[in-house]
Amino acid sequence: MSTGTAELEERRARLEAARDALTGLDEVLAGACGNDLGALMELLDEVAARASAGRVVVALEAVRRGEAAGSATHAWIRQHAPSLRQSGAAALARLVVDVAAGDTPTHRRDPDPDTPLGVVWAAVRTGEIEAHTGCAVLRETTRLAPLLQPAALPTATTGLVALAAEHGPAVMRRLRPRLLAEHGRDGTLEDLHTHLAAAARLSTPRIESGDLTEYQLWMTPEQAATLEAAIGPLSAPAPNEQTGEPDLRPAGQRRVEALTTVCATATTLHTGTHDTDRGPDTTLHLTIPLTDLTSGTTRDPGELLADLTDQAVPSATAPLPSSSTARRAGTVLATTADGTLLPPETVRRLGCDAGLLVHLLGARGEPLTLTRILRLYTRGQRRHLLLR
């Protein structure tokens, strides 16, 4: 018996012993004390992760030997790994077939570690992520590949793997705006927001007689940030000033009442029944480096900064050209939309309207200036413009 065969038989015996040890485990758990249960759970989790990785390499070996191939791989896995019939068999089959596709008639070749498949395969074969999670990461990298700079794709894939391993594949889409802002091709984030605008919509009301009216709302990041800036302060809990009793309204009720207040204010503005000049209806805080704010423009950074602040800025404050790793986006602050990324073009457009506070940062992240909240046009003047 060869050395390799003997080692395989020894490992098979250990696996059978582990299987026997897990059988009837619930019957002896009463003897656990202290932190035994936590330590036992950690051990079981590690064993399960290693077993998952073991199934992957065994399935790949079956494909490479021809015991399973192409569409038959799924059936082979379902036959020999019945627990995966519930879910996971298709993802495992897809992954091992993709990995085996890189083989040549004379050599077995693992995927290039600098490709998305190579990054995902390294994580799956070690048990860091499950095969179905790896397939989800590959689907996301396929969507991102045309949008990112080619050199950034392995880095982005590594970040997605780490995020999926920590929080599951469902949260990967949250990282997409950050990846596009930091590693996307020029104008990618702006293009994404433009395409999202066509998909944003507010449904017509679904009215039930004597019951609540239902709406469905889909918004772009810019629209959502503006909405949260408007209703956020109004939806905060408001204790009774006289009695000190807490505000017992649930968050959903406070938010819809805040939205109603904003809509009522807008209605009085258009009808001319609201005479108090309170300035802008909403205030949106953004931080953005000056290099990012001026990217895509031909104007001197000092001139653009002066337009936003009404302050003369020496040309010496003009930053160095932004690098490919620049964030190239503004970050929303001080609302429930914190962290939302907006493209520089959107920030520049918002900078022409009322109620925007831009915290400009220099090339090294140092604060340069804080724009004012009151713009040149008062509410009364804006009302007059509406009549023209």
Score class of each variant (00 low, 15 high):
Arg349Lys: 14
His384Lys: 01
Thr267Arg: 11
Leu293Gly: 00
Thr133Val: 09
Thr115Met: 06
Gly296His: 02
Val137Asp: 04
Gln242Pro: 15
Pro343Asn: 10
Leu43His: 09
Val161Cys: 12
Glu190Asn: 11
Glu228Asn: 13
Leu15Gln: 12
His285Phe: 07
Thr204Leu: 14
Arg85Cys: 15
Ala165Phe: 04
Gly34Lys: 01
Leu259Gly: 01
His183Lys: 08
Gly54Ile: 02
Val124Thr: 07
Leu144Gly: 06
Val97His: 05
Gln253Cys: 00
Thr188Arg: 02
Leu175Arg: 13
His132Leu: 12
Thr5Arg: 14
Gln86Arg: 11
Ser322Glu: 07
Glu208Arg: 10
Thr378Tyr: 07
Pro344Gln: 05
Cys135Gly: 11
Leu293Met: 00
Pro239Glu: 05
Gly4Asn: 10
Ala51His: 10
Thr106Ile: 08
Leu370Ile: 06
Ala197Gln: 14
Arg55Phe: 07
Tyr215Gly: 00
Pro246Cys: 09
Val137Asn: 04
Thr291Glu: 07
Leu138Met: 03
Gly355Leu: 09
Ala81Asn: 09
Val171Arg: 08
Thr213Asp: 04
Gln223Phe: 01
Ala18Trp: 12
Glu303Trp: 00
Ala59Asn: 11
Cys135Tyr: 07
Ala62Leu: 11
Leu44Glu: 01
Arg78Gln: 14
Ala21Pro: 01
His193Val: 11
Leu360Pro: 02
Cys263Asp: 01
Leu153Pro: 13
Val358Asp: 03
Leu84Arg: 06
Gly70Ile: 05
Leu8Ser: 13
Gln216Cys: 02
Val262Asn: 04
Ala100Val: 11
Thr297Ser: 09
Ser315Glu: 00
